[in-house]
Amino acid sequence: MVTYRPVKQIFILILALIMGMSLSFWLIPSKMDYEWNVWRDRTLEWETKDYEINGIYTFDGVKATTEVGDWSEGNSQFNLTSVVSDDSTFQFQVFFEDEKIFIDSGGKWLQNDINSRFVEELTPLYHPFEWIREILNEADKVERIKDGDKTTFRAIFDSFEEFDFRGTLLSKQHKTTLIVIEKNGVIQSVTFEARPIRPDSISILDRYPEQMSYKIDFTEIESAQFVLPKEAYESELME
């Protein structure tokens, strides 16, 4: 007499394993994916508010620019101080109004349509939150640390797909991080610390940093100040 073992027992087990596992790997995000999405969604929330901002850009440990002003999604204005040498600085004002950029340099006004060149030179002032979203697309690791009211978002970058930060091409990285601190749902600061590896495409004669950092502090305000004089609208076109 032949005894049959029901094959369906094993078949059901294997089928359930395939169904369950494939569904979970397809539908469920990893914790990092989830944190990344939370961070990205927070940027959409942050950008709806107006802020007073204070930024410092350092290049190889030396302060390169400071930026103070008001930011809102429509109109923003900043006072920029660029360090020229040990004892001299160059100051100018930048205004973004919708699709226009205006610059006041020593009382001389210039204007133009906002294009990628102007935006890149003043990254990430024009739109810090869009910039965060853009750079997050290059992140290799993401984490979110909650400590009471304070939340720290941290992204680590091992390499970029040719990402430009204020004229510096970022490719492979030693250790580069982006840290955003939020308190009670309000963004407090954005800190970008980069330790880039010089790309082969950069000539040995060209200046390239071993380290650079950019930090913006945000203070939420009722409404961003924005006053453009009449001569700004009548000014010459900026090259």
């Binding site: 359930a16 394993l17 169904m19 369950g20 596992m21 494939s22 569904l23 979970s24 790997f25 539908l27 469920i28 995000p29 990893s30 914790k31 990092m32 994916d33 989830y34 990344w36 999405n37 997050l136 697309n137 290059e138 992140a139 290799d140 690791k141 993401v142």
Partner: peptide, 18 residues
């Protein structure tokens, strides 16, 4: 298996979404 797989996926330190 969906629950087990989800738990594994959640803990996997991989950023796929970027």
């Amino acid at each position: 298996f969906l629950l087990i797989g989800s738990w594994f996926k959640w803990l996997t330190p991989i950023l796929n979404v970027t």
